[in-house]
Design a protein around this nucleic acid. Structure first.
Length: 558
RNA sequence: UGGGGUAUCGCCAAGUUGGUAAGGCACGGGAUUCUGAAUCCCGCAUUCGUUGGUUCGAGUCCAGCUACCCCAGCCA
């Protein structure tokens, strides 16, 4: 991670600096990334991962990976595996610190018992509906539960029997005894343990009571020695409870963890909620969680986004507390910048148009030297012959002004090869353009007598007999956006019907035949592409990562 | 009409104790170019949601107002 050693300042780092200055956390900074294993990670999680691991790195501290697996009804090992793969791929390491909230169930249980002993928790027999009714509303205080003042022994006994499995789901809960009249609804005697006879993906049937997030999280943080517990804005109201719990259980205020909230990521042309992403997958609108149009880490990876570009993106967008909507153009800029430096260049023709060089010897083949990269060097050979293909978009019979490509009677340079001139447009019986007859300037190849002739346009091309057929998948935004960059609430209505275009008959130079899935290329003058996992040597498949900036297309539009 | 937050250029976002608005993306112009790419210059907030106040001086302090976000799961 050498891309930026001095990350921009943000308010979380400022808070850490302040703490350190005040002599807090002398043991060092310790953060954590705490996903619930109930879905795949997306670019929003990447922001949190980069923040938490980045903060640790920047402060000589540590960052744990902790699965927040306190709700077995929603979680699965499938997700714990994918989450680990994604965090690793992003380039971060939790070293030997992979934890699970479920590892702490025994300790958490003891803390709950201790809370009861201190008169700060009670077993409540109200039903879920009753608890809701007793809770009050945003503007009206709640009512105290009739079970609020049970004796200590009764509470201890009931809680033990909850654990023992004596009661059915929903019959009892353990609640913190705080303040039913608090203007902060989170503090109105929140439920901290519920009964759920559900087997857990790690602890099996060992437990039938499970702690709630609000109880498990601060204590898990404290158990692991977390100093800064960074979470998103919606937990701001929960911070008083976070502190209350740690206070009530007697954790030292100078060393215990501190919760700090930041704004989650929103991206234009994208939805980020797990619910909506799941809907896209389950509704068959995309091919899966790793569909290259998805904002999931696995989707971005398959699309061809690099880990470095995602890290760079997370750094550029910054960390703050205001809700924001980041332009996806920044993400695209980040991959382009990475791939421009790191991707080898290759020629591929997406929409082939045949070109015959009438003055080129029949049967002759040359192998021309082509640079792999304009600045990094390296070369490979590309075959050249009498019959070629160029892109349909690179020829116009009646072009507009400043069209630097091929036109009747016009000249153009073929990249790495010769200058050619369009002599004749050959049509089929229906009047459709069938092929172009051109002549080439034999001395215009690199090193030749006329090589330095100034020709305005340079085209990419492919030699007909050696070109490999390829499947190329072009992508556009999955979702359309209104003028504010916002996706409609009814996001399925915003689905872009043209988000995927599959080109089955593209042609690519043969150098690429044995390429491996995951390899990045720049298709000259087209964009950046990544070899898809569906590829085989006999059927090459490429995903478009992002197109090149195109000032010509922009000028045509505007 | 309760509580918690946020408001600095089209989009993000720095602005430590008040001293006279960083940077990135986008955009516009030019140079360069065997990728209309990349690269390189240059331009891009007399103004910080708004109204007042304090001060020699306020994005930064005070007061009022407005807009937007979050909270009434035995989800996280």
């Amino acid at each position: 991670m050498a891309e930026n050693l001095t990350p921009p300042s943000n308010f979380v780092q400022n808070a850490i600096d302040e703490d350190l200055k005040n002599g807090k956390y002398t043991e060092g900074i310790h953060t954590r990334f705490p996903p619930e294993p109930n879905g795949y990670l997306h670019i929003g999680h990447a922001k949190s991962i980069c923040l938490n691991f980045g903060l640790a790195l920047a402060n000589g501290g540590k960052c744990n990976l902790r699965f927040d697996d306190t709700n077995p009804t929603k979680e699965d090992v499938e997700y714990v595996d994918s989450i680990q793969e994604d965090v690793k791929w992003l380039g971060f390491s939790w070293e030997d610190r992979k934890f699970y909230a479920s590892n702490y169930f025994p300790q958490l249980y003891e803390y709950a018992v201790e809370l009861i002993r201190r008169g700060k928790a009670y077993v409540c027999d109200l039903s879920a509906e009753q608890i809701r009714a007793y809770r009050g509303t945003l503007t009206e205080p709640g009512k105290e539960s009739p079970y609020r003042n049970r004796s200590l022994n009764e509470n201890l006994d009931l809680f033990a029997r909850m654990k023992q499995g004596e009661f059915p789901d929903g019959s009892h809960v353990l609640r913190a005894k705080i303040d039913m009249a608090s203007p902060n609804i989170t503090m109105r005697d929140p439920v901290i343990y519920r009964i759920s006879h559900t087997s857990h993906h790690r602890t099996g049937d060992e437990w039938c009571i499970y702690p709630m997030y609000d109880f498990a999280h601060p204590l898990s943080d404290a158990i692991e020695g977390i100093t800064h517990s960074v979470c998103t804005l919606e937990f701001e109201d929960h911070r008083p409870l976070y502190d209350w719990l740690l206070d009530s259980l007697g954790f030292d205020p100078t060393t215990r963890p501190r919760q700090i909230e930041f704004a989650r990521l929103n991206l234009t042309n994208t939805v980020m909620s797990k619910r909506k992403l799941r809907q896209l997958v389950e509704g068959g609108y995309v091919s899966g969680w790793d569909d290259p149009r998805m904002p999931t880490i696995s989707g971005l990876r398959r699309r061809g986004y690099t880990a470095a570009s995602i890290r760079d993106f997370c750094e550029r967008i910054g960390i703050a507390k205001s809700n924001s909507l980041v332009d996806v153009a920044i993400l695209e800029h980040c991959v382009r910048e990475d791939l421009n430096v790191n991707a080898d260049r290759v020629m591929a023709v997406l929409h082939p148009l045949k070109v015959v060089l009438t003055n080129y010897p029949v049967g002759k083949t040359e192998h021309l030297l082509a640079e792999n990269h304009p600045t990094r060097g390296g070369h490979h050979y590309v075959p050249f012959g009498r019959e070629l293909y160029i892109d349909q978009a690179d020829f116009m019979e009646d072009p507009p002004k400043k069209f630097f490509r091929l036109k009747p009677g016009g000249e153009v340079r073929l990249k790495h090869a010769y200058i050619i001139k369009c002599e004749e447009v050959v049509r089929d019986a229906a009047g459709q353009i069938q092929e172009l007859h051109c002549t080439y300037d034999p001395e215009s190849k690199a090193g030749g007598a006329t090589a330095s002739r100034k020709i305005k346009g340079t085209l990419h091309w492919v030699e007909a007999s050696s070109a490999l057929p390829a499947e190329v998948r072009l992508y556009d935004y999955l979702l359309t956006t209104d003028t504010d960059g916002e996706v409609a609430d009814d996001f399925l209505s915003a689905l872009n019907p043209k988000s995927l275009t599959v080109i089955q008959d593209a042609l690519i130079e043969p150098a690429v035949r044995w390429t491996a899935a995951g390899t990045h290329y720049q298709f000259l003058r087209e964009g950046y592409f990544c070899v898809d996992k569906d590829t085989t040597p006999d059927h090459l498949v490429f995903n478009q990562v992002v197109g090149l900036r195109d000032s010509w297309a922009k000028a045509q539009k505007g």
